[in-house]
């Protein structure tokens, strides 16, 4: 399964090569052109069906290849690795996890002081990253340095698998789910009525940096960001928003911390979904940020919207998503791309 290989690939912000090569292999036969820019964005073009217009309408769809994780910042005399976070990880989720260090995937564990040795107070305190370390089984700095370098990236060693009820678990669904959906979309039809730029971006998790330069280069007329997004539908004490609901359909962002969705594009998605009976939902506004936050500010501005697959426990070592949401996102977008010109004549 494509999502499985994408989820198990390692690609932290700034080191997306493994994911990029995997995607490239998948899309090479599906697109007309591709290139990799100076930051490492993979920009693909699937040309539109009719070439009547001098400059066909350009639609950009972005999904980011990078995931959150860790980076080795120092090697102790004892051989243990000190690390910093790459992107927004929650300290509470790190202890007692298995990780893969460097491009050679050296296995290691994030150790924790045994509960027996903890003072009463410590049991209720979150350990901060600068107090943690990775143990790769070595006993000296020299030994460690034969396998690991300062600056090596560290990813979680989470395996992908299926759960009951059409759910799957794995790591990095934010945003490999988006990458997989974009690949499916490119696979779905010979062509769409617009020039479709499928852009697999880098460095989203550390500041939406890949999308920024890619959007400048592509100069799209409209843009969509595909995401694996926050889903918080577990039971709560108060009647509050679940952000999104697993199995509730493709999640449309109206506004988040990085942008307001273009109202016309939201209308397009909603009308397309209603007309074709595709389940959809609105994501809780003002939560998170996506590549659309930079794309919509490119040059003179680009009408943009984000659509997502709800994922439980994102930015932690293990996530869960529903394959039905994934399929609904692909279906909704495929229909919306076809409907776009009728709802919105040439730019």
């Amino acid at each position: 399964m494509l999502l499985q290989s994408l989820s198990e690939a390692c690609g932290l912000s700034g080191n997306e090569a493994e994911v990029r090569n995997l995607i490239l292999k998948e899309v090479q036969g599906l697109v007309d052109e591709h290139r990799i820019d100076s930051l490492g964005n993979l920009i693909t073009l699937k040309r539109c069906s009719s070439t009547g217009a001098a400059r066909p309408r350009r639609v950009m769809i972005a999904a980011h290849m990078d995931e959150v994780g860790l980076m080795v910042t120092h090697i102790e005399k004892s051989g243990h690795l000190r690390f910093s976070k790459v992107g927004g990880l929650d300290d509470r989720t790190l202890l007692s996890k298995v990780v893969l260090v460097g491009n050679d995937r050296v296995p290691g564990v994030i150790g924790a002081k045994p509960i027996h040795l903890l003072k009463e107070k410590e049991r209720h305190q979150v350990v901060e990253t600068d107090q943690m370390y990775i143990d790769i089984g070595t006993s000296s700095k020299e030994e460690t340095e034969r396998a690991v370098k300062r600056g090596d990236y560290v990813a979680f060693a989470t395996r992908f698998s299926r759960l009951e009820g059409g759910l799957v678990k794995g790591k990095a669904f934010d945003d490999r789910a988006g990458c997989a959906a974009l690949i499916e979309l490119l696979r779905g039809r010979g062509s769409y009525p617009s020039d479709l730029y499928g852009v697999f971006t880098v460095q989203e998790e550390i500041g939406l940096r890949g999308a920024r330069v890619a959007a400048y280069a592509v100069e799209p007329d409209y843009a969509f960001a595909f995401e694996g997004t926050v889903c918080d539908d577990l039971p709560k004490k108060k009647d509050l928003s679940p952000t999104t609901i697993l199995g509730g359909g493709a999640a449309i962002t109206l506004a988040d911390r990085s942008f307001f969705a273009d109202k016309r594009l939201v209308k397009l998605l909603v009308e397309t979904a209603e007309k074709n009976g595709v389940p959809y939902q609105f994501k809780q506004p003002m939560v998170g940020a996506t590549d659309a936050g930079r794309i919509h500010l490119a040059r003179e501005g680009v009408p943009s919207v984000a659509v997502a697959v709800p994922c439980r426990y994102i930015h932690s070592p293990v996530n869960i998503l529903s394959l039905s949401d994934f399929e609904n996102l692909v279906r909704l977008m495929s229909l919306a791309l076809v409907a776009l010109p009728t709802l919105w004549p040439s730019p």
């Binding site: 820019d37 930051l39 910042t73 940096r209 330069v213």
Partner: peptide, 20 residues
């Protein structure tokens, strides 16, 4: 010198200029 995120230098701004 490894940087897990921003370098907080001119390099951070220069890298994302125009098309990168």
């Amino acid at each position: 010198e490894p940087y897990p995120g921003s370098t907080s230098t001119d390099a951070w701004a220069i890298q994302v200029t125009r098309e990168g």
